[in-house]
Amino acid sequence: MLVAVGIGPGDPELLTVKAVKLIEKADQVFVPGNVAKDIIAPYRADPVVLSFPMTADEDYIKRCIEQNAETIAPVAKEGLAVFCILGDPNFYGTFGRLCDVLDEKYPDIAYSTVPGVSSITAFASAAQISLNGGIEITDGSENTATLRMKVRRPKEMADELRKSGYTTFILAEKMYMDGQKIYQTDELPEESAYFSILYAGK
């Protein structure tokens, strides 16, 4: 089993309790560089440092990711491998690309993610500002998605977003609470709970 754990924006004390427990009990912990190694140092002294280069050379990046998958795979097949990622593993991280390689070369390895404090939410605290209303977050790519919070009428909202070219929808209701539900595009309910987020992608 491979679990990608978000380790927050830089302060070792901003790791979640769940993240720390997984890091401590893992058969092996992997980190994408020395910054991540330093962040988890209070909880684990023996992580394997992997290379995830910051470069525009896509061929080189792919080769590195494939090598990293080969390093992680033996541990993940036999026990618990934990891969620590700054911020959150599903927000502009490298884990998605690693999963693509695992799906192709090691389809028998199961993987999951544990959320962490993302740079987006950490920014508001560091800058001492309160974010309310609509905000746009982008890495400059052409892939466009939007998140709508506190969605009370998700099906109606999806119909409106379709007029702007959005085609894929996922509704998360009561995340990590009792009664959590995840709805796909063709399952959206007419009404949802206050604690809900609607993802829309093109």
Rank of each mutant, 00 (worst) to 15 (best):
3 V>G: 02
7 I>D: 00
10 G>F: 13
10 G>H: 14
14 L>I: 09
14 L>P: 07
20 V>E: 13
20 V>Y: 13
22 L>W: 14
23 I>T: 06
24 E>V: 05
27 D>R: 06
28 Q>E: 13
29 V>D: 06
29 V>P: 04
29 V>W: 15
31 V>H: 02
31 V>N: 01
34 N>Y: 15
35 V>T: 15
36 A>Q: 04
37 K>G: 08
38 D>W: 15
39 I>M: 11
39 I>H: 06
40 I>D: 10
42 P>T: 08
44 R>F: 08
44 R>C: 09
45 A>K: 15
45 A>R: 12
46 D>H: 11
49 V>I: 04
50 L>W: 06
50 L>K: 01
53 P>I: 07
54 M>A: 08
56 A>K: 14
56 A>L: 12
58 E>I: 08
59 D>P: 02
59 D>W: 11
59 D>F: 08
60 Y>E: 06
60 Y>C: 03
61 I>K: 14
61 I>S: 08
63 R>F: 11
65 I>C: 09
67 Q>M: 15
69 A>T: 04
69 A>V: 05
70 E>C: 11
73 A>D: 07
74 P>K: 06
75 V>A: 05
77 K>V: 08
79 G>Y: 14
80 L>S: 03
80 L>N: 05
81 A>P: 03
83 F>I: 00
83 F>N: 00
83 F>E: 00
84 C>I: 02
84 C>G: 03
86 L>D: 00
86 L>K: 03
87 G>L: 01
88 D>L: 03
90 N>S: 14
94 T>Y: 14
94 T>S: 13
95 F>H: 02
97 R>T: 02
97 R>G: 01
98 L>G: 00
98 L>Q: 06
100 D>S: 06
100 D>V: 00
102 L>V: 01
102 L>I: 04
102 L>D: 01
103 D>N: 02
103 D>G: 02
104 E>M: 03
104 E>P: 00
104 E>G: 01
105 K>M: 12
106 Y>V: 01
107 P>H: 03
109 I>A: 03
109 I>Y: 13
111 Y>D: 05
112 S>F: 13
112 S>M: 15
116 G>L: 10
116 G>H: 04
117 V>F: 09
118 S>T: 04
118 S>Q: 04
123 F>Q: 00
126 A>Y: 15
126 A>S: 14
128 Q>W: 09
130 S>C: 11
132 N>F: 12
132 N>I: 05
133 G>K: 07
134 G>H: 14
135 I>L: 13
137 I>D: 04
137 I>H: 04
140 G>N: 08
140 G>E: 11
144 T>F: 12
148 R>W: 15
149 M>K: 03
152 R>Y: 10
152 R>E: 12
154 P>A: 08
155 K>W: 10
159 D>N: 07
160 E>F: 09
160 E>M: 03
161 L>R: 01
162 R>Y: 11
162 R>P: 02
162 R>Q: 11
165 G>E: 09
165 G>H: 08
167 T>M: 15
168 T>M: 14
173 E>L: 01
175 M>C: 07
175 M>R: 06
175 M>L: 12
176 Y>A: 03
176 Y>I: 03
177 M>S: 05
177 M>H: 05
179 G>K: 07
183 Y>D: 05
184 Q>W: 11
185 T>S: 11
187 E>L: 08
191 E>W: 08
191 E>N: 09
192 S>T: 02
192 S>Q: 06
192 S>G: 07
196 S>A: 09
196 S>E: 10
197 I>D: 10
198 L>R: 04
198 L>T: 04
202 K>H: 15
202 K>R: 15
202 K>T: 08
